[in-house]
Amino acid sequence: MTEATTPLLQVNSIEVIYNHVILVLKGVSFSVPEGGVVALLGGNGAGKTTTLRAVSNLLRGERGEVTKGTIALRDERIEALTPAELVLRGVIQVMEGRHCFGHLSIEENLLTGAYTRRDGKAAIAETLAKVYDYFPRLKTRRKSQAAYTSGGEQQMCAIGRALMANPRMVLLDEPSMGLAPQIVDEVFGIVRRLNQQEGVTFLLAEQNTNMALRYADFGYILENGRVVMEGAAKDLAINEDVKEFYLGLSTVGRKSFRDIKHYRRRKRWLS
């Protein structure tokens, strides 16, 4: 990516406060290029989900609010839009924990994803066929009530449902949560194909650093509501600190990033 092209999504030092008092994001900045796969990494409570909600504007329903900073989609400010308006602009979030509609069948779940579309039944049917192509498991379970399908199938259903809106960008929150390793691989493999073949941009929030870095091209590491490190995924994957603190490759055991690197991080925030 060259400096000249504007990124698809540009987030500039945002601050997020829940319930008017709980300051959760303390100046987070990052950008996502058109057609990229960008990962937001970090442990429990680092602020990954909050960051995604700030972009998709699902914060308001959680009594959260962006109090500082800017969020721009192709140079258009989007902080004040409703989630529905963002879906119309091609940005959709797949929530952490999948959130399928339990009493609806898999196919009905997928069809609800097309709610905002106005391009007609035929176009929607075409997208549905495409989603079934990417997720053949969903096709075999299309008549089942979503609540009774497996965790992997529900994750696929949640992603497929988002794809039904014909998005340009998917905010994918913790897709690996609670899934067996080979299912995680399958899901990430499909994400990669969607990215390469359909040109869908992904912003991925993951605790599973190892997996995420294998499939993303760029990563940001969040800790305590701040970006503490960023870089190309392949560089992060071989970075000693990342290895030690997030990939569990250390012999010393897990420590917080802040223990040793405090001085360096502080320098970064100030710069």
Binding site: M95, H99, L104, T112, Y115
Partner: peptide, 20 residues
């Protein structure tokens, strides 16, 4: 009607896919 049932099941998820 399907959107109504979706909202009944999980209104946050419904909102996330653009159902107002």
């Amino acid at each position: 009607g399907r959107a109504l049932r979706a909202v009944a099941d999980d209104h946050q998820a419904a909102q996330s896919i653009g159902i107002p």
